[in-house]
């Protein structure tokens, strides 16, 4: 099994941006990720699918070391981003998270104004006061939120609709100028119209960013991603081009999942 996974998990990609090698993760005694290896290509959308509890969210949190915050969490293996092991001894986690942004499942803007939400990261990272306006406007433009909010930047972020809040969270992430953005089921709390706006946005963003998205919505993965990985019980069962995964899966369990026989 392991051998097969490793073979499939390395599609011939132009430029790998993230390389994962034999990644294992335990929560206390329980092993949540088993021997994951894969290349995630640059400037593309990589979707991770699988039934709930399969480890896909745990995995994505390894890529910006958010699992460091979990008690009793132990990790083995390598995660290389731009050929640097992010679990190496000399790595500054704070620096890493600037490079690898993350958008969460539930829209979670800070209880501040729209403007302050976006300006929060750049301000703390020491961007010049006079440049902040530009950064905020740029980020809101990129997140396709500028037109709706330019006239009320000072109103509280919590007054926005759910979909707008999620785009604000994306803008907030963009303002820090990461190179990779991780999306952890970003639309599962949103209505279909807001969802499709976010999907459009993600497809636009891949010009400039490498995107990894966890979703349990298979149609979403099929619509927006270039590559898809199928997780099951802590293992990466199959990884390849999205078209291939959805039309000619090599593994029986991938096919079962995609055709809705379980999950």
């Amino acid at each position: 099994m392991t051998e097969v996974v490793q073979n499939i998990a390395q599609p011939r990609v132009a430029q790998p941006h993230i390389t994962v090698g034999n990644l294992n993760l335990w929560y206390g005694e329980k092993q949540a990720l088993k021997n994951i290896s894969m290349h995630i290509p640059k400037n593309s959308v990589t979707a991770l699918i699988g039934p709930s509890g399969c480890g896909k969210s745990t995995f994505i949190r390894c890529l910006n070391r958010m699992n460091d915050l979990v008690k009793n969490c132990r990790i083995e293996g390598k995660v290389l981003i731009e050929n640097k092991d992010i679990y190496g001894a000399d790595v500054d986690v704070v620096e890493l998270r600037k490079q690898v942004g993350m958008v969460f499942q539930k829209p979670n803007p800070f209880p501040m104004s729209i403007y302050d939400n976006v300006a929060y990261g750049p301000r703390i990272h020491g961007v010049n006061k006079k440049d902040i306006n530009g950064v905020v406007e740029g980020a809101l433009h990129s997140a396709a939120l500028w037109d709706e909010t330019s006239d009320r930047l000072k109103s509280p972020a919590l007054s926005l609709s759910g979909g707008q809040q999620q785009r604000l969270c994306i803008a907030r992430t963009l303002a820090v100028k990461p190179r990779i953005i991780l999306f952890d089921e970003p639309t599962s709390a949103l209505d279909p119209i807001s969802t499709s706006r976010i999907e459009d946005l993600i497809m636009n963003l891949k010009k400039d960013y490498t995107i990894v998205i966890v979703t349990h919505n298979m149609q979403q993965a099929a619509r927006i991603s270039d590559y898809t990985g199928f997780f099951f019980m802590g293992e990466l069962i199959e990884f390849g081009q999205t078209r291939q995964i959805f039309h000619s899966p090599k593994e029986k369990s991938t096919e079962d999942y995609i055709t809705g026989r379980f999950g």
Binding site: N64, M66, L69, V94, E95, L96, R97, K98, Q99, G101, M102, F104, N108, F110, P111, Y120, G121, I124, H125, C169, R172, T173, V176, P178
Partner: peptide, 10 residues
Amino acid sequence: YRDSSLALGI
């Protein structure tokens, strides 16, 4: 709030 701030590299 804590998670999303940490995820911004703060």
